[in-house]
Simulated assay, not measured.
Amino acid sequence: MDFKTFVFYVLAVIMVFAGLRVITARNPVHAALFLVLSFFSAGGIWLLLAAEFLAVVLVMVYVGAVMVLFLFVVMMLDINLDRLRQGFWSYLPVGALIGVLLVVEMALVLGGRYFGLEAMPEPPAAQAGYSNTRELGRLLYTDYVYPFELASLLLLVAMIVAVTLTLRKRKGVRYLNPSEQISIKRGDRVELISMPAEKE
């Protein structure tokens, strides 16, 4: 086993362990931190696959921005853990079935040659001056521009929902309503009074 394969297996074991801890950790903050660890491990695996841009984007965007947002939302919401755990075991059969299907799919993909299936051919060697970042950008902004824009809209909606969930309305707090301010007419605020001039 060469060093690259050894690093892949180490990162894969860490990522699987972190993924399991994401769904089994009792504390939501701990689960979010284990998700950060799994993102870092996935970024390392992408580096092994010579996809440097995807690895850097995964760490910068998901760990640096999305996970910080998750942590803020988790810490600001009053999550009742006891209520969340009610009926947890009722979902076990469906979760176990999906887990078994995922294991079977991964075994077929990774160990296809051992089951008599034809293995995927090795990708051709990269030519001189080839940049996977340039190729990814070309595909994103030509062939997949509409799915890319749809994904950005979904992220925008998710951000608005996160802000709305953390919004608290307090009683007795004075605030300004911009729509009422704009709809005010001059006659509602200014009253002209005609008074006779005083004589000495």
Rank of each mutant, 00 (worst) to 15 (best):
119 A>T: 00
136 L>P: 01
63 V>M: 06
150 L>D: 01
95 G>F: 12
192 L>Y: 04
35 L>V: 08
164 T>G: 14
108 L>V: 13
174 R>K: 15
43 G>D: 08
42 A>V: 12
143 D>P: 06
48 L>T: 07
117 L>R: 01
60 M>E: 08
122 E>Q: 07
189 R>E: 14
42 A>Y: 07
19 G>A: 13
187 G>E: 09
71 L>R: 00
120 M>Q: 00
10 V>F: 11
2 D>E: 07
110 L>S: 05
91 Y>W: 10
57 V>W: 08
109 V>L: 11
172 G>A: 11
146 Y>Q: 14
84 L>Y: 11
107 A>C: 08
197 A>Q: 14
150 L>Y: 00
86 Q>R: 15
60 M>T: 13
200 E>K: 14
57 V>C: 10
114 Y>K: 02
156 L>K: 07
189 R>W: 14
56 V>G: 03
129 G>S: 05
10 V>E: 11
197 A>K: 15
5 T>S: 15
104 V>C: 06
163 V>E: 00
173 V>Q: 13
24 T>V: 03
96 A>E: 03
32 A>G: 10
176 L>Q: 07
144 Y>L: 15
63 V>N: 09
28 P>A: 09
74 V>G: 06
40 F>T: 09
111 G>N: 07
128 A>Y: 07
128 A>L: 13
183 S>C: 05
192 L>A: 02
124 P>F: 10
77 L>G: 01
133 T>E: 01
142 T>V: 09
68 V>T: 15
42 A>G: 11
114 Y>C: 02
147 P>Y: 00
158 A>T: 10
167 L>C: 06
22 V>G: 05
109 V>W: 06
192 L>H: 02
182 I>C: 01
42 A>P: 02
127 Q>A: 15
164 T>L: 14
181 Q>W: 10
18 A>C: 15
54 L>S: 15
119 A>I: 00
120 M>P: 00
53 F>R: 04
17 F>K: 03
92 L>Q: 04
133 T>R: 04
25 A>P: 06
70 F>E: 05
29 V>L: 06
72 F>G: 07
77 L>S: 11
52 E>T: 01
8 F>G: 00
20 L>G: 13
130 Y>T: 05
41 S>Y: 02
191 E>N: 09
64 G>S: 11
50 A>W: 01
124 P>R: 13
37 L>H: 00
3 F>M: 08
21 R>C: 05
199 K>Q: 11
191 E>I: 13
123 P>S: 06
60 M>R: 03
29 V>P: 06
91 Y>V: 12
58 L>R: 03
